[in-house]
């Protein structure tokens, strides 16, 4: 419980952010050194593929979904009443 409070504390925001960025760099970097035991598709061989694909996926999902939603799907809460 203490850890959560500490993480949520404004004072530690800077450190938490730095730690998160460090984790991102670490994971991205590690992918350059990992032994690839199976490469089925061409993208399996690209270092950092997971990181790039994850980021692109996230952005695409948010933008495309919100676009579809605002264009057609989202209705007022009393729509069916």
């Amino acid at each position: 419980m203490k850890i959560i409070d500490w993480l949520a504390d404004e004072k530690n925001r800077g450190f938490v952010k730095k730690a998160c960025y460090a984790a991102l760099v670490l994971v991205f970097g590690a992918d350059f050194f990992v032994h690839r035991h199976h490469v089925t598709f061409f993208w399996d061989g690209i270092p950092g593929y997971g990181a790039v694909y994850g980021f692109v996926s996230c952005v695409v999902i948010i933008i495309v979904s919100k676009a579809i939603g605002h264009a057609a799907l989202m209705k007022k809460e009393d729509y069916y009443d």
Partner: peptide, 20 residues
């Protein structure tokens, strides 16, 4: 649990978090 699988999975997840 292979190194490749773990690192790829973490890459996808952490960079999704970045995007979020």
């Amino acid at each position: 649990y292979t190194a490749q699988h773990v690192v790829t999975a973490l890459g996808i997840l952490l960079f999704t978090a970045l995007g979020f």
